Simulated assay, not measured.
Amino acid sequence: MAVNPELKAYLQTRRSIPAFQMGEPGPSHDEIMEMLKLATRVPDHGKLAPWRFAVYRGAERERLSLALADVAMARNPELSEEMVKVEKSRLTRAPVVIAVLSRAAPHVKIPEWEQVMSAGAVCLNLLMAANALGYCSNWLTEWYAFDESVHPLLGIKPDEKVAGFIHIGTPTVPPFERPRPDVDSLVTFYGDA
């Protein structure tokens, strides 16, 4: 069996950069399209492509962030000044934000759960595709991912769920390591080696 040392080294050191620690430059249109093509190379039972993308960039990120902030402040007039600033910057922390939208639905042959997991695989592939093109990335789901009342603002259709908002940019700080799970405590082997 051939070992791929570059891929192994990447997986051993893969990290996310927090979205608020990203800056310009962000990926170009062509780079975004290349990332999306790479991201879709995932398990997809039945070739349904049960996901799609919404790409937020440029001034549209600020317009949407302010609209989301208006909703958050209307619901909670007691928001602290610091939280108001956070709400107003939701989609402006990184130069590009890509929503991976799950279109999982009942199917005669393909379980809906498999379709949902395919969207999750797209999110992870998109993180890695961004890294492969020299950018940093972070997979987030925040309140607006689950609040269907704001989905029309974000171009999310009624039959879609947010698998993740992938923030992409250039790191403004070096990546840091975080504690990782103790794999030995998570594995149960059955049968002989």
Rank of each mutant, 00 (worst) to 15 (best):
R15N: 08
P18S: 08
F165Q: 01
F53A: 02
L66A: 07
G58H: 09
H167S: 14
G120M: 08
S89T: 04
Y56H: 14
V97C: 10
A145L: 13
T141R: 15
P106Q: 08
S28E: 00
V97H: 05
V173T: 15
P171E: 08
D44P: 00
G58Q: 08
K8Q: 13
V100H: 03
H151Y: 13
A54N: 11
N4G: 03
E87P: 00
P77C: 05
A67G: 04
S149G: 11
A69P: 05
K37F: 08
R14V: 06
V108R: 15
S16R: 09
S185A: 15
L11H: 08
P43H: 07
L124S: 13
G155L: 08
H45G: 02
G46F: 00
P77Q: 00
A72F: 03
P106C: 07
E160F: 09
S149Y: 10
H151S: 12
E78T: 07
A39D: 04
P111C: 09
L64H: 01
R57T: 13
V162F: 06
E78Y: 03
V3D: 10
L48E: 02
I168W: 04
V162P: 09
T188N: 11
E148N: 13
L38E: 04
R15D: 05
T40N: 07
R61N: 07
E78R: 06
C136F: 09
L48R: 10
P152I: 12
E142G: 12
K88D: 01
P77L: 00
G23R: 01
P50S: 03
Y190A: 12
H107E: 12
E160A: 10
P111I: 10
K8N: 12
V86E: 00
A2R: 12
S80V: 00
V86M: 03
